[in-house]
């Protein structure tokens, strides 16, 4: 990715009168961290980056920002929000359009063809984080890590995030402007994580998930980071009636995680953010990918690909398969 092009485009878009701010990525405060950037003017675009460390899916901010009542005598701010998207992020935007969570003319989408990002946990494990912010680049088929002035070439296979290994849409599926040439797609590997769990018998599968959900602290970072968890009134926050108790134990944690998984069936675009942010290290991606795979295999539906699609959970065809329904 040409940084100059990225910043030039960012500056142009951020300076537009009809754009409130541009969402992009910037260097974080230490180590491998990359922080979301809210760029409000052309000058702010100078800090934008796009690198294998840019894991965050910024589409979540489209629906996360609170809509406060407009004070009497003032006009609502109807300017657009611009955002930079990788392939997976763009699927979130598309799915939001399908669900009418956002309208197309509310956003300016800048597409960043993405050769795949790193798994930040794996990176930190293999190459310990330093206090000084480090940089990373794509270097042909490999990653190039630059820390404390030293360059280390790392093979793609070593650090590529699981979601990227399985990715079929590295190029944004929706955009107003595309930065650079599309990248070549690759054959998604086997989803070993899901297959391993599928191969277990029912009892050991239950035991596996019991151990996982037992760790959940119910911080709801998975829900909040998810671009498609944007209900104004989440079922988990309801007290009257209380669908999920506040008590943190295996039973309630399971209710929470299953509720979230099912609400995302046919909607999850596999950006992997839930798994990345989970402070309890629960492999949430396995649940969502399993559901996504079932929806794809059984109904031939993929969310976040076609902005004209009918929402999966709101559509019915007489020949929908039902042989697996009890």
């Amino acid at each position: 990715m040409d940084l100059e092009l990225l910043r030039k485009t960012g500056a142009e878009v951020a300076a537009r009168d009809d754009v409130k701010y541009l969402l992009g990525w910037k260097q974080g405060t230490y180590g491998y961290r990359v922080a979301p950037a809210f760029v409000e003017n052309a000058a702010g675009a100078a800090e934008l980056i796009f690198s294998p460390l840019c894991t965050a899916n910024l589409a979540t901010y489209l629906t996360l920002v609170e809509q406060l009542p407009v004070p009497r005598g003032e006009e609502p701010d109807t300017r657009k929000v611009a955002l930079m998207v990788k392939g997976c992020d763009s699927r979130a935007v598309t799915q939001l359009l399908v669900e009418k969570g956002i309208e197309r003319d509310e956003v300016v989408v800048i597409g960043c063809p993405c050769p795949g990002v790193v798994d930040p946990a794996l990176l930190a494990e293999k190459y310990p984080e330093t206090e000084e912010p480090a940089e990373m680049k794509w270097d042909g088929e490999d990653f190039l890590l630059i820390r404390n002035g030293e360059e280390t070439k790392i093979s793609r296979d070593e650090l590529l995030a699981e979601k990227c290994r399985l990715c079929r849409y590295p190029n944004p599926v929706v955009s107003d402007e595309m930065l650079g040439e599309p990248v070549e797609t690759w054959a998604p590997g086997e989803d070993k994580g899901v297959e391993e769990v599928e191969a277990k018998d029912v009892d050991s599968r239950l035991e596996y998930w019991m151990d996982q959900f037992d760790k959940c602290v119910r911080c709801y970072s998975c829900r909040n980071v998810c671009p498609l968890c944007y209900c104004q009134d989440c079922i988990l926050d309801r007290l009257n009636p209380t669908w999920v108790n506040r008590s943190v134990n295996f039973s309630e944690n399971t209710a929470f995680n299953i509720a979230r998984a099912f609400h995302l069936a046919g909607r999850c675009i596999e950006c992997g953010e839930c798994e990345r942010v989970c402070p309890a290290n629960i492999p949430l991606g396995k649940i969502n990918r399993k559901l996504a795979r079932d929806v794809r295999d059984k109904y031939g539906f993929e969310p976040g690909v076609d902005p004209e699609a009918e929402p999966f959970q709101a559509s019915y065809k007489p020949d929908d398969p039902e042989d697996f329904i009890l």
Binding site: A35, P36, F38, T60, Y61, L64, V217, R218, C219, Y220, S221, R223, N224, V225, L239, T242, N245, R246, S247, V277, P279
Partner: peptide, 24 residues
């Protein structure tokens, strides 16, 4: 601006001590 509004920082904070009371 970038805060997700999740409870990670507070739940993992050793000094955060706020609680809610519920009948279940």
């Amino acid at each position: 601006a970038s805060c997700l509004g999740c409870g990670t920082c507070t739940y993992l904070c050793p000094t955060c001590h706020c609680f809610d009371i519920q009948d279940e």
